[in-house]
Design a protein around this nucleic acid. Structure first.
Lengths: 179, 179
DNA sequence: GCTGACATGTAACCCGTTACATGATTTT
DNA sequence: AAAATCATGTAACGGGTTACATGTCAGC
């Protein structure tokens, strides 16, 4: 009965600045995509739910011609919901399923080459992720004066450390298998 | 349209040795719980699906008194499905949602104490995970002569490296916030 | 006139967990 | 006699993705 986190992301992002649904998607893509995602199928309906629950407000509808853009902002009530969640203890039960590791666990069934290929492709993926972090770092630089910034850097660093550890692991495994 | 991984875990585990549904649960708990989980609601129905697809076979039903235990084993067909999957390239798109990091991203909204508490509780959780790895290492020692063993150690090491990186990160963040 | 970004949304589907149901057997 | 573990399952629910639907606007 995992509670719906989508509404919390929305509230969180709107606590930074008023945004439209589309803005939220872009914001996520530029900043937290390395540990969070939202799909349209969740985003837009949730936006409307939050609106009817008065946790967010519809600031204005911009219309240039007939192109519509809904700009939302967080309400006082929304803020208190957000703050309550932030102070809540996160239950860390959720284990995240890792398909590569699962395959590796059964790798005795296949040739060493298959296994090596798995590791190399993971290595490559991790390297791409590292590059992604560079991009994100660039993207959020424009917020470097914001009080949010230091926390965002924390997040980035987390991804960085994880990726480095992963890379080291891939290489060690590959070395051990090729000896 | 994420394909059902449950059946692959089952096939994988049965490729090691014949097991009952309950055995599978225990096996997971003793070996791969750090990166995989299965619930009853998935396990038992999938077992029956695999059976009717002839990817696994019902070896025998043990009855001591009226306590029933179904022992399954993998068929040739099941083996080839397993091997095909192992050789398949894993699409690494799946980002795993991290609620702590999400909270941290919005931490400007709350007092530094709340943020510190978040980090400390994460640190504690990671330490517990490290202890878990010790347990798992003990539990799988009985397989140390098996050709599977080296891969299992790889997996364990992955978790270990991840946890160490996480721990370092937690501590750095805490230090930076308490200065 | 076409492509690609802008912009919002819905419907179907599936994966997975939770909670419940049932009953035997072993241990305390 | 109670509690824990063994053992298999089902029903309901909900979260989340995919794919589709619709239409505008800017630039080439």
């Amino acid at each position: 009965m995992e509670k719906q986190k989508t509404k919390l992301v929305i509230l969180g992002l709107l606590s930074i600045e008023p945004l439209s649904g589309y803005d939220i998607k872009k914001f996520i893509a530029r900043s937290i995509r390395h540990f969070w995602s939202e799909s349209n199928g969740q985003l837009y309906p949730t936006l409307n739910t939050l609106l009817s629950n008065k946790l967010i407000a519809l600031d204005r509808i911009e219309q240039k011609g007939k192109k519509v853009s809904h700009l939302y902002s967080i309400t006082e009530e929304g803020r208190s919901v957000l703050e309550r969640w932030l102070a809540e203890k996160t239950e860390g039960k959720k284990i995240h399923r890792d398909e590569d590791l699962l395959k590796l666990f059964f790798c005795k069934n296949v040739s060493p080459d298959v296994c090596l290929e798995l590791l190399r492709s993971r290595e490559k993926r991790v390297q791409e992720k590292l590059e992604e972090f560079q991009e994100i770092q660039e993207d959020i630089k424009k917020y470097s004066d914001s009080p949010h910034y230091r926390f965002w850097i924390f997040n980035l660093k987390n991804g960085l450390y994880q990726a480095e550890a992963e890379l080291r692991w891939c290489r060690e495994c590959i070395r051990e298998l090729t000896q």
